[in-house]
Design a protein around this nucleic acid. Structure first.
Length: 951
RNA sequence: GCGGGAGUUGCCAAGCCUGGUCAAAGGCGCAGGGCUUAGGACCCUGUCUCUUAGGGGUUCGUGGGUUCAAAUCCCACCUCCCGCACCA
C-alpha cells in the first residue's frame, strides 16, 4: 500500500549519519558495550542472520535512548576453511556451486570468475553483508570495522596466542584427523563430496602369533578375546608381509597403508595369499591355545586388518560363517568340533546370543545384509546389559560396559594388542576425488581447555554473568565440563601464523574469541593513527592489561594513552549476542579466553542467545530453496516490517517463524499507526476526566512493563505490549470518550502516541522517525529519551474503569443469552453492610485464609457483619470474586475504603449504555427506599458486582 | 549413549520460574456484519461445550501426587527436536 518504505528508510538513515549518533567515543556518560558474533562472509546473509543482529540492535538502541553511551561495532571473519573450499570448487568449475552463486545468491558472473581466489569471495560477501546491515538500520559504529586478516588484527592474534602460551595453556601433541592424501590436508564436512563429516573410531588390534609373524585382527570388542575360536581369512586376498615399528605383521595392503598415515614405520617385506594361510594355526594371546585360520567370504581387505578373529557365540557374522563353513566339511571331521565359547551372560539371551539373533532374523548365509542389524542388536544388548562370565578370569562378574576400558588397558600392558584408527563411514571422498584416510597429526597445537584451574575460573565468571535466557545457562556449565584439549592451529587457509611455529595458522574458532577488544584498536587503525609497525607485546600488554607503562613503547605516547583510556572505558563487554548454535563452541571459548587473558574486572557481563528462523515453519536450506536473502526481503517488504516480524514471532530461544502473512500484518499495523500519527495534534491537557486518568495510568504501567521486558531481552513481549495489548485499553478509552461526546482528547492521544512511538523506535527505527515527525515532535525519536514512569498510577481510576467494564460485560452477556432487546437497564449496587463484609473477607483472604467456614465464623462474631449469616451464598461468591483477581487489585481494594459505586455508575455508565444500546439506565442502591425491583434482583448485588435487571 | 530443549484450545504461539487475574493473550484461519462498484485492505462481533440472567461442564502430551486451589509445583511414563569437536 501507499508507503514508500525504502524512501523513508533512506531519508532517516541519512539523518542518522549526519548526527553521528552511533559513533561512540568515551565520554562522561555510563557506557554499554554490545557486540554480536561477526559474520563469516561466504554467502549473503539471510533472514536467519538478521535475527541475531536485529535483537542486538534493538538492545543497543534501547540503551542509547536510556541515556547510555552505547558502542555497537561490527567486524568480518575472513579466516576459515569453507571459503577456501568454495574457491577450490569454483576453480574446478563445480557447476553445483557456480549455479548456486548465480541463481540463489545472484552474484554477477564477472564476480564469480574472480572467486577462484578465496579473498575475493570474502570481499564480495563482506560488502554484500555490510550493505544489508546498513539497510536494516543497524546502529553500528562503522568506524571500527575490520577483517580478521588485517595486519594489525594479526598482530593482535599473535599477542593473544603468545599470551596463552606463556600461561602454559597451549600444549603440543598428536591428534587424529580426517585427511586427504592428495591435498595433504585435513578434511572436514565442507571439504568432502556430499558434505559428509569424516567419522572415525579406535579399533583394538589383537595380536595372534603365527610363527615369526604376528597376525593382528581388528575389533571393537576386546573382551571377546576370551571367546575366540578361530580366525577368518579371505582366501582371495593378497596379504602383505610388513614390518611395523620393528614387528613382523601380516595384514592387507589397505591396512598397511592406513598404518603409514597413523605415523607407524612400515616396511614391505613380501606377500602371502589368503589361501596359503587357510588351515594354519595361530596362538591366542594370554590363552596360549592354538586355533585354526579358516576361510570366510565376508572378510574384506579394506576393513580392519583384512583378517578377523572369530567369536561365534557373540558375533553374528562369525556364527554364520562358522555354520557356512561346517556345511562344507565332511561329517565326523574334527573341524565339526569347533564350538562357540560363550563368555557373556545377557538377560533375554541364552548361551549363544549370536545364534539366536541369526535365527530370529532368518539369516541364511554370511553375505546376508541383515547380519549388520543382528550385530548391532547383540552389540548393544551385550554392551549395556551383559555380564562377563567365569571364563573371563579377572574380569568375571563385571558389566561389559564397565570392564571394557580395563580390558583394553590390560591388553595394552601385556602387549597383546595395538590400536588402529579407522573411518567408520568410509569411503569418504575429498572434493578433489581422493579417498580420505585417518591421519595422526604430530606436533599439533592445542588449547588446553581440559585444565581444571581454567575451567574453574570460567565457571566463576559464568556464575556472575547474566545469561539470557536463563534456560541455557546449564548448557554452558556442561560444555565447560566436558571440554578438553582443542586444536587451535591448522595448516592451510587465511589467517595468522603461530609466532613460534610458522608452519601453522591460528584456527578460526581460536582467533575470534577476544576480538571485542580489537574494536578499540580498529578505530585508530582506520583513522590512520595506528599501523602494524612496531606493535609490540608491550603495547598490547599495556593497552589491554594495564601492564607496564606507555614509556617503553615505540609509538606516540598520547596515542597509546588514548587507546588505553578508551579500552578502560568500554571494556568489559556488557552484552554478547549470538545464535544458540554457538553455545558449545564460540560463546564458551569467548568466556574461557577472556578469563585466561584479562583481569577479572574485564570479564564479560552478559550473553544473550537466540534461536533460529524458520521459513513458513520449515528449516531454511539451500536444497529446499527457501533461503531468503536479507537484502531481497528488505526490498520486498521494507526493513522495519522484517525487523518486527522476526521479533514478534517468538521469544528468544524459540525458533522464529518468518512468513508472509505476519509481515503483511505488521505492515498494515504500521501503516495504520503512521496514518494515526499524522492526524494527532499536540494540545494542552485540560481537566482530566475519569477515563483520562485511567488511560494515563495504563500508559504508565505499559511503559514500566515494556522497559522491564527489554531489560530481560523479552523483546517479543515488549513489542507486543506496546503495539497490541495496549490497543485494547486504547479502544476502551475511545469508547468512553466518544460515548460522552467529547472532542477534547486529542492532546491525550498525542501524548500517549508520542510515548508509544518512542518505545517503538528501537524496534522499527525508520518508520518511528517518520511517525515522530508526523506527530510534530522535534528532533529525532532515536535521540529522544526513553519514556519514564512519571506519574503515579491512579489506583482508584483503575478500579473504576474495571468496574464499568465488568458491568458492561455483564449486560452484554445477559443480552446475548436471553436474546432480548433491552428497553431499560436497572442497576442495583450493594448495601454498605455488604461492603463492610466484603472488606472483612478481603482482609481474611489476603492474610491467607480462604476457608469458607472460618471466614463465616469471623463475620458472625462481628455485630457489624453478623447479618451476613442470612446470605451465605454472598460469602461464598465474594471469596470466589476476590480469588479471581490479581493480587495487585486486591491490595488496592483493601486500601480503598471509600468507593462510591452508585455515584460512579450514575456519572459514567449512563453514556456508555446509551451509546451501546440506546437505552436509559436507572441506578438504585440495594437499600434505597422506593426501589424498583420487580424481580428481586437487588439482593444479589455484591460490592464491585452490582445486580442488573434488563427489561 | 551423554547433554539440552519442547509437547497448550483448527494452526502458529504466550502463560509455567513467582499456583488463585486462566476457558487460557496475540496472530493466522474460519463465520457473520460494516465499508467498498467489486476485490483487497481496514473496522466490529463470534470462534471447547451446554445454558432465554451475568451461570455450569470438560480441557493445557499420559498417569499419579502435593494444595482450599495446578497449564503452572513434585514423581513416573510417552513423543518430538537440537548439540556432541577441530567446523563456521
Amino acid at each position: 500500500m501507499g508507503i514508500d518504505w525504502s524512501g523513508i528508510e533512506a531519508k532517516w538513515r541519512k539523518k542518522w549519519d549526519e548526527v553521528k549518533d552511533f559513533e561512540a567515543n568515551p565520554n562522561e556518560k555510563e557506557k554499554k558495550f554490545i557486540t554480536v558474533a561477526y559474520p563469516y562472509p561466504n554467502s549473503p546473509q539471510h533472514i536467519g542472520h538478521g535475527r541475531t543482529y536485529t535483537l542486538a540492535d534493538v538492545h543497543a538502541r534501547y540503551y542509547r535512548m536510556k541515556g547510555y553511551n552505547v558502542l555497537f561495532p561490527m567486524g568480518f571473519h575472513y579466516t576459515g576453511t569453507p571459503i577456501l573450499g568454495m574457491a577450490k570448487r569454483v576453480e574446478a568449475g563445480d557447476s553445483e556451486i557456480i549455479d548456486g552463486l548465480k541463481n540463489i545468491y545472484h552474484v554477477p558472473e564477472n564476480d564469480i570468475k574472480t572467486f577462484v581466489e578465496p579473498i575475493k569471495i570474502a570481499d564480495y560477501f563482506h560488502e554484500e553483508i555490510k550493505s544489508g546491515m546498513i539497510e536494516m538500520g543497524y546502529s553500528i559504529d562503522w568506524r571500527r570495522e575490520f577483517t580478521t586478516i588485517d595486519p594489525v588484527y594479526q598482530k593482535f592474534i599473535e599477542w593473544q596466542i603468545t599470551t596463552l602460551k606463556e600461561k602454559n595453556l597451549i600444549i603440543q601433541g598428536s591428534h587424529p584427523v580426517g585427511w586427504c592424501p592428495k591435498d595433504q590436508n585435513p578434511v572436514s564436512q565442507h571439504d568432502t563430496m556430499g558434505d559428509v563429516e569424516p567419522d572415525f573410531t579406535e579399533y583394538i588390534l589383537i595380536k595372534f602369533k603365527f610363527d615369526d609373524y604376528i597376525i593382528p585382527t581388528a575389533t571393537l570388542r576386546p573382551e571377546t578375546l576370551f571367546g575366540v575360536t578361530n580366525l577368518w581369512v579371505n582366501p582371495g586376498t593378497k596379504y602383505k608381509k610388513v614390518t611395523v615399528d620393528g614387528e613382523k605383521w601380516i595384514v592387507s595392503a589397505e591396512c598397511a597403508r592406513k598404518l603409514e598415515f597413523l605415523e607407524r614405520k612400515v616396511t614391505y617385506d613380501g606377500e602371502i595369499s589368503g589361501a596359503e594361510l587357510v588351515g594354519k594355526l595361530v596362538e591366542v594371546p594370554h590363552r596360549k591355545e592354538k586355533i585354526l585360520i579358516l576361510e570366510a567370504s565376508f572378510v574384506e581387505s579394506h576393513t580392519g586388518t583384512g583378517l578377523v578373529m572369530s567369536v561365534p557365540a557373540h558375533a553374528p557374522f562369525d556364527y554364520q560363517a562358522l555354520v557356512d563353513f561346517k556345511k562344507n566339511q565332511p561329517l565326523g571331521s574334527e573341524l565339526q568340533l569347533i564350538r562357540p565359547i560363550s563368555i557373556i551372560q545377557t538377560e533375554g539371551y541364552g548361551e549363544i546370543p549370536a545364534k539366536e539373533a541369526v535365527e530370529k532374523l532368518g539369516i541364511s548365509d554370511q553375505n546376508d545384509p541383515k547380519l549388520e542389524q543382528a550385530t548391532e542388536e547383540i552389540y548393544g544388548k551385550e554392551f549395556y546389559g551383559g555380564i562377563l562370565k567365569q571364563n573371563t578370569e579377572q574380569f568375571a562378574g563385571k558389566k561389559v560396559s564397565e570392564a571394557k576400558e580395563s580390558i583394553k588397558e590390560w591388553l595394552a600392558k601385556e602387549k597383546y594388542s595395538d590400536v588402529l584408527l579407522e573411518l567408520t563411514n568410509s569411503p569418504v571422498k575429498c572434493r578433489c576425488g581422493a579417498e580420505c584416510v585417518v591421519k595422526i597429526l604430530t606436533n599439533q597445537w592445542f588449547l588446553n581447555y581440559g585444565d581444571n584451574n581454567w575451567k574453574e575460573k570460567a565457571n566463576r565468571c559464568l556464575d556472575k554473568m547474566s545469561i539470557l535466557p536463563q534456560e541455557i545457562r546449564g548448557e554452558f556449565n556442561y560444555v565447560i565440563g566436558w571440554l578438553h584439549e582443542r586444536a587451535c592451529a591448522r595448516q592451510h587457509g587465511m589467517g595468522t601464523k603461530l609466532p613460534w611455529d610458522q608452519a601453522w595458522i591460528v584456527e578460526s574458532l581460536s582467533d575470534s574469541v577476544i576480538y571485542m577488544a580489537y574494536y578499540i584498536l580498529a578505530k585508530f587503525v582506520n583513522s590512520g593513527k595506528l599501523s602494524a609497525d612496531g606493535l609490540s607485546k608491550e603495547f598490547f600488554d599495556y593497552v589491554f592489561l594495564g601492564k607496564g607503562s606507555s614509556d617503553g613503547i615505540k609509538l606516540p605516547k598520547d596515542i597509546v594513552e588514548e587507546i588505553r583510556k578508551e579500552f578502560s572505558y568500554f571494556y568489559p563487554v556488557d552484552s554478547r549476542h549470538s545464535g544458540r548454535d554457538l553455545v558449545p563452541n564460540h560463546l564458551t571459548f569467548f568466556v574461557l579466553n577472556h578469563v585466561a587473558i584479562f583481569p577479572e574486572k574485564d570479564w564479560p557481563r552478559q550473553i544473550v542467545v537466540n534461536g533460529s528462523v524458520l521459513m513458513d515453519g520449515k528449516k531454511m536450506s539451500k536444497s529446499m530453496g527457501n533461503i531468503i536473502p536479507l537484502r531481497q526481503a528488505i526490498r520486498d517488504h521494507g526493513a522495519d516490517p522484517i525487523r518486527l516480524a522476526i521479533i514478534i514471532s517468538a521469544e528468544l530461544l524459540q525458533d522464529a517463524d518468518f512468513n508472509l502473512e505476519s509481515v503483511n500484518g505488521i505492515k498494515n499495523k504500521l501503516v495504520a499507526l503512521l496514518d494515526e500519527c499524522s492526524k494527532l495534534k499536540a494540545e494542552k491537557l485540560g481537566n482530566l476526566q475519569a477515563e483520562d486518568k485511567w488511560i494515563l495510568s495504563k500508559l504508565q504501567s505499559m511503559i514500566s512493563g515494556v522497559s522491564s521486558s527489554i531489560e530481560k531481552m523479552r523483546l517479543r513481549e515488549a513489542l507486543h505490549g506496546n503495539l497490541f495489548s495496549f490497543e485494547a485499553d486504547l479502544n476502551w478509552f475511545l469508547k468512553r470518550a466518544r460515548a460522552k461526546g467529547r472532542n477534547d482528547y486529542s492532546g491525550i492521544l498525542h501524548e500517549i502516541t508520542t510515548k508509544r512511538i518512542a518505545m517503538l523506535s528501537p524496534f522499527a527505527p525508520h518508520i518511528a522517525e517518520e511517525m515522530w515527525e508526523k506527530l510534530g515532535n522535534s528532533g529525532l525519536v532515536s535521540q529522544s529519551g526513553w519514556p519514564t514512569v512519571s506519574a503515579k498510577i491512579d489506583a482508584k481510576a483503575v478500579l473504576s474503569e474495571d468496574l464499568l467494564k465488568s458491568v458492561m460485560d455483564d449486560v452484554a452477556n445477559i443480552i446475548k443469552i436471553t436474546k432480548i432487546t433491552p428497553k431499560k437497564i436497572i442497576i442495583y449496587t450493594a448495601d454498605s453492610f455488604k461492603s463492610k463484609a466484603y472488606h472483612a473477607i478481603l482482609d481474611k483472604v489476603m492474610s491467607g485464609e480462604t476457608n469458607m467456614g472460618a471466614i463465616m465464623k469471623d463475620l458472625i462474631a462481628n455485630p457489624e457483619t453478623a447479618d451476613i449469616k442470612k446470605n451465605p451464598d454472598f460469602v461464598q461468591k465474594t471469596i470466589k470474586d476476590i480469588l479471581s483477581e490479581p493480587v495487585e487489585i486486591r491490595k488496592t481494594k483493601l486500601e480503598t475504603v471509600e468507593f462510591d459505586e452508585k455515584g460512579l455508575i450514575s456519572d459514567e455508565l449512563i453514556s456508555l449504555a446509551k451509546a451501546d444500546y440506546g437505552v436509559d439506565v436507572q441506578i438504585y442502591s440495594e437499600s434505597d427506599s422506593g426501589i424498583y425491583d420487580p424481580k428481586g434482583k437487588a439482593r444479589h448485588s455484591r460490592p464491585f458486582k452490582p445486580a442488573i435487571l434488563i427489561e
